[in-house]
């Protein structure tokens, strides 16, 4: 099973939101990385048939998105960014409603589905709670549970960890990894750590264009031998090619940077996905 995208272009108000995007996604968690406004959500909405597109072709599990949108929807689950729901309905009522809309007409099978999905995300004991009573992390888990209704083959997850505390963020990542067997999970985020801990393959989008498409390891390897640490004793920060971060070490300040020719006295260090992302996007960070 795969998602195939060929030369996809989307124009909105005379601006190319997506410009000639091509990629193939196979089973597992696939990362879609890019800063805000890069076109990630637009791409997700186009794949999910919610948005029309201007040019190109999309095939989802052999189905043409333009010609067979209803069939595509049947095999899709979607968790949008900042997921929320009607506040004054219970989790159980919301789920029952969504199961009905997904075509589950038998009340017994609906009940089983609700129990299964809520158990999967650890919300079974909360099913009588109103949506407004759920924490941010619980809402996100409800979001992923609703995306799993009917056991879809493809799940689109948009910025799932924004606003979550570190504990919730880690448990959410584990949940994504757990449900990813035999499925395509397309995880869109601007948080590099989310991709680093869940995805084998990824695409980096920048201003609607594909900046990188391939494996996470290959992307990291692009900066191997180019990431350096340099300690400074005073406040004067030297000029470096591509600045990554600054860390206070007590008596000195440690600069992490990317360069082909390092400053004298720099120490080479193991690259991370964040280094590679900054390198590929060539985004100069301000101190």
């Amino acid at each position: 099973m795969e998602i195939k995208i060929k030369n996809l272009t989307k124009i909105y108000k005379n601006i190319k939101v997506l410009d000639n995007v091509s990629l193939e996604i196979h089973n597992g968690v696939f990362g879609l990385l890019g800063e805000n406004g890069a076109g990630k959500t637009t791409l997700m909405e186009i794949i999910s048939t919610l948005l029309p597109f201007d040019d190109g072709e999309i095939e989802v599990a052999g189905l043409n998105v333009k010609k067979e949108p209803l069939k595509v929807c049947e095999i899709l689950g979607y968790l949008p960014q900042k997921f929320d729901f009607f506040p004054k309905v219970t989790l159980e009522e919301s789920f029952d409603y969504l199961c009905k809309l997904k075509g589950m007409n038998n009340s017994e099978s609906r009940k089983q589905e609700i129990n299964l999905r809520l158990q999967e995300v650890g919300l079974l004991s909360e099913q009588k709670k109103y949506i407004q009573e759920l924490s941010g992390g619980m809402k996100q888990r409800f979001g992923i549970a609703q995306a799993l209704i009917g056991n879809p083959k493809i799940i689109l997850i948009d910025e799932p960890t924004v606003g979550l505390d570190p504990h919730e963020r880690i448990s959410f990542r584990n949940l994504i990894t757990r449900i990813s067997r035999d499925k395509i999970i397309l995880l869109s985020t601007h948080i590099v750590q989310d991709i680093a801990s869940t995805c084998k393959n990824l695409m980096v989008l920048q201003k609607g264009k594909v900046n990188y498409f391939g494996s996470t390891i290959d992307l990291i390897n692009k900066v191997r031998g180019k990431v350096w640490l340099y300690n400074i004793l005073d406040d004067e920060i030297p000029h470096v090619d591509l600045f990554v971060s600054l860390q206070d070490k007590g008596s000195s300040i440690e600069i992490r940077y990317i360069a082909d020719n390092p400053l004298q006295g720099s120490i080479s260090t193991e690259p991370t996905l964040e280094d590679a992302y900054i390198y590929i996007n060539r985004k100069e960070l301000t101190v």
């Binding site: 048939t49 919610l50 929807c73 960014q81 809309l101 609703q146």
Partner: peptide, 14 residues
């Protein structure tokens, strides 16, 4: 349309 209405409810409608 709120984001969940669009991406969650509408996606399930024929």
């Amino acid at each position: 349309l709120q984001s969940f209405e669009r991406a969650v409810i509408l996606l399930k409608l024929t």
